[in-house]
């Protein structure tokens, strides 16, 4: 019986269960006769076991809901029918009319709920941290908007657009992810020619429908926000109130339209 000669390539075959049954005994003898090859085989087997152990835990992790939604939803989320509450939010906004009246009349509404205050506070905190950073305010710049919004959408679970605020004098610097109240929010930053910066904070969080303006007791930037079940956004800046209202409303309308929600 002439046993075929083995090479280190057979170490891989043996390790991966690809060595034919009738060659295994001869392979073992070859290993015993070649200590280097045996050492190599033991080392590869150990690395293999380490790799397998390292990722074994992933199978036990709860499956993120966005992945279940990707399968069970009727196709990709962005093609879903408009949820009623977003239509209602959009409609309410259109009815609100003049921005001055809107800001004056709405700032108190919905303030009983804590979640919107919390969202506004987080949006202001994010604005204060990142808009103030002259050199690196954003993580991904605005030059490739499709990439930016694709990334932010995926991470927040929303269909996001970067509102075009050029007619208000603001251009997109870019965006980043920031912490929200238990999830992740998208922060998009804009600057005008004078160097004023505003930020658009969007998160898939919210409990009940509310809208308003929010400023910290200590002063500083103002947040104009909208919230509904599962959706919240806040536009933050230090512009004069009238201008702030115009920019915020423009941004909000585009966000809603971009999500396919304003065609009611």
């Amino acid at each position: 019986m002439t046993a075929r000669s083995f090479t280190d390539r057979d170490i891989h075959l043996a390790l991966d269960g690809e060595l034919p049954e009738d060659e295994r005994a001869a392979y073992q003898m070859w290993l015993e006769a070649n200590p280097d090859m045996k050492a190599k085989s033991l080392r590869f087997a150990a690395d293999n076991a380490a790799l397998r152990n390292l990722f074994a835990g992933v199978l036990e992790e709860p499956v993120p809901s966005r992945l279940v939604t990707a399968v069970n939803g009727d196709g990709p989320r962005r093609k879903q029918a408009t949820p009623w509450w977003r239509m209602a939010a959009a409609a309410a906004l259109l009815i609100a009319g003049g921005v001055g009246g809107y800001l004056a009349g709405m700032s108190g509404i919905g303030m009983g709920a804590d979640s919107d205050d919390r969202m506004a506070q987080l949006a202001i905190a994010a604005h204060q941290t990142f808009a103030a950073d002259k050199n690196r305010p954003v993580e991904v710049d605005g030059s490739d908007q499709a990439y930016l919004t694709g990334w932010l959408s995926k991470r927040t679970g929303l269909t996001l657009v970067a509102p075009d605020l050029t007619k208000n004098g603001f251009t997109l610097l870019g965006g980043r992810l920031v912490p929200a109240n238990g999830s992740t929010a998208a922060l998009m930053l804009y600057a005008d020619a004078e160097g004023n910066r505003i930020s658009v904070y969007v998160v898939a969080e919210g409990t009940e429908r509310s809208k308003g303006t929010f400023t910290l007791a200590s002063g500083g930037p103002e947040a104009v926000y909208w919230q509904d079940e599962g959706y919240g956004c806040a536009i933050v800046g230090t512009l004069p109130p009238e201008q702030m209202g115009v920019v915020a409303k423009d941004a909000y309308k585009q966000l809603i339209a971009g999500a396919g929600l304003a065609r009611s």
């Binding site: 790799l51 990722f55 992790e61 499956v63 992945l67 399968v71």
Partner: peptide
């Protein structure tokens, strides 16, 4: 089919993580 795909998610996640 959807149910069968759902069952594969843990395996897909492990492969992606590696």
């Amino acid at each position: 089919k959807k149910a069968a795909i759902l069952q594969e998610i843990p395996r897909l996640r492990r492969y992606a993580r590696a």
